[in-house]
Design a protein around this nucleic acid. Structure first.
Lengths: 205, 205
DNA sequence: ATTGTGACCATATTACCAAATGGTCACTAG
DNA sequence: CTAGTGACCATTTGGTAATATGGTCACAAT
């Protein structure tokens, strides 16, 4: 039996197609330069030399284009943080890096790519599938670290893993969710350190 | 030497005056029924049977009226939570109640008095003095609980008190800051419990 | 002095209409 | 059949003129 891959937005048109990439490229350019709202779909069409209608052969909406770009951003952040985590030896250090990494990466998204923030905000409020998937991957990374720490004896083993993971996720959430981070600028310097400290104390065997 | 009381908004006109209370009462009524933005200062004037100009003898701005009301709300919340905390015997239970209490009270503010949310939001974003004071009082309450727990031997004593308090405050913040709570509705049921658990684990001696 | 106001000003908000935009579809070219 | 489009529609958005609002002040009544 074939496993049915449920694409939340049933992709329109050929999934692997040069034009699809052109659209995403043009959109990335335009969205980050002029902003999501200020960019009209016909602007993207003009940029790649096709008509607006053709774009809708590949994406079912403007938001779908935004989703694609958003997914890329989130992938980038995740990759970067995973790399930083992998560099560390000790599970405790991994956890610290995860926290700091996500905070810094999200912060950068908000400042450096200020124009992309609109998308990130919509994505988070409306819970686009790319965001849901991202959150799940973050939780997965967290669980990996926790389990490693449990196996090595660095972390306590009494509390159920799922509970620990859920709680730590809640602690971290305000620092990698753009909507929340926005209201925590005053704390971004110390928060990752202080909270990592607290979390690690809670994990001590 | 007289202690100079620094009122952040140098109160205008007689501090204790019947009309002042009438204004606050009318504003509470109007703001919570029609919303802060939709209420004009002249509406309040009409409601209490004076001219708009007279209101400005008591408050230096519409926002100042909002501040007064906001301060009342926050006082109420604090009183309620303090009562719930006082009921508990053990420091750990106090901490749990504090967390749960603030979450529920803030949530109620957002739902029951939906119209007042506008004020709360402005107050939080613009860091009105009533909010700053409130946050300080919350942190004070937290420190009280922590010290009691340290004295009774329920909580660890190695980590500096200020550091512990700061970290726990950061954990709680998303649940009594209306701006943040707004983005955490999905978690308000489990979060206080799970996070209290984590925090208490981090405090174990 | 205290209580109280109408007239006034600059800015913010509303109401309105024209232009722009997201999105579809029947259709053409090869 | 695939690649591609102009013309079209409903809804948003932008711009603007009229109105409403926050806030002040000189002044009146007690």
């Amino acid at each position: 039996m074939k496993k049915a891959v449920i694409t939340p937005q049933p992709a329109r048109g050929p999934v692997d197609h040069e034009v699809r990439d052109q659209i995403v490229a043009a959109a990335t350019e335009h969205f980050s330069r002029y902003g999501y709202e200020k960019t009209a779909v016909s602007d993207l069409a003009k940029a790649i030399g096709f008509s607006k209608a053709y774009i809708y052969k590949f994406f079912e909406s403007k938001q779908a284009i935004g989703e694609a770009i958003c997914a890329n951003c989130l992938r980038e952040i995740e990759t970067e943080v995973r790399a930083a985590v992998a560099e560390a030896e000790l599970p405790s250090e991994k956890l610290r890096r995860m926290f700091k990494g996500f905070t810094e990466a999200t912060l950068r998204l908000l400042f450096r790519d200020r124009k992309l923030y609109e998308i990130a905000a919509s994505a988070a409020t409306e819970r686009w599938s790319s965001v849901v998937a991202y959150e799940e991957r973050v939780q997965a990374l967290l669980k990996e670290i926790l389990q490693e720490g449990r196996q090595s004896g660095d972390f306590e083993r009494k509390t159920p893993l799922d509970e620990t993971a859920a709680a730590i996720y809640l602690v971290m959430r305000p620092y990698f969710n753009p909507l929340l981070l926005q209201h925590s600028f005053d704390y971004t310097d110390e928060a990752p350190g202080q909270l990592s400290g607290l979390v690690l104390r809670s994990l001590s065997p």
